[in-house]
């Protein structure tokens, strides 16, 4: 018989500031995160775990849960995986794309024009969540209409994912 070893003690972080951030920008209801734990493995990242995770102490995990928010930047940013995960809960700064815009997004294009109708749920310049027929695709950077230019966005589709994408993502 051997004794049941202890599991790794995870130092969860206070999620309140991050939940506020996601609520402010994307209108994600604050109570959406009740069944998750927030964990910061390093200076760059916050990951999201479920509440029942019992990782071993040894071998020590090299990663846990879903990489969720990149924090080593001026404006912390949801990862693409994080966006796909919480995007369906967003109520503002969400833009529904056309098929042509979807293809531009997957080609990592910049200055992709948006119609006025598409930007009704957008607030200020900054991150937006992109969807197509209600399915979340990832994130972009939104620039509202100004004197110089019409509203538009840059694709944040990650380089690492981009080699998967082709010109027409609907075949």
């Amino acid at each position: 018989m051997h004794e049941e070893p202890e599991f790794l003690t995870i130092d969860y972080i206070d999620s309140a500031p991050w939940i506020t951030l996601l609520n402010d920008r994307f209108g994600i209801p604050t109570e959406s995160f009740e069944s998750y734990r927030w964990y910061q493995p390093n200076r760059k990242l916050i990951s999201l775990l479920n509440t029942s995770m019992q990782p071993p102490r040894r071998p020590e995990p090299i990663s846990m849960g879903l990489p969720f928010i990149r924090i080593n930047m001026k404006y912390p940013k949801l990862t693409t995986g994080g966006t796909l995960f919480v995007g369906p809960l967003a109520t503002k700064n969400v833009v529904e794309l056309t098929e042509e815009q979807v293809n531009s997004y997957y080609s990592r294009a910049m200055y992709i024009p948006l119609t006025e109708e598409q930007t009704t749920r957008c607030t200020t310049m900054g991150y937006i969540i992109l969807s197509f027929q209600g399915i979340i695709l990832g994130q972009g950077f939104y620039r509202p209409k100004s004197e110089e230019e019409d509203a538009n966005f840059d694709s944040f589709y990650p380089k690492a994912f981009a080699n998967h994408a082709q010109r027409s993502a609907l075949g």
Binding site: L49, E60, P61, G81, L84, F161
Partner: peptide
């Protein structure tokens, strides 16, 4: 890791 990201998996500890 890339599958975890794309599929949104929360219950995996990698070693």
């Amino acid at each position: 890791r890339s599958i975890i990201d794309r599929l949104g998996l929360l219950n995996i500890a990698m070693s």
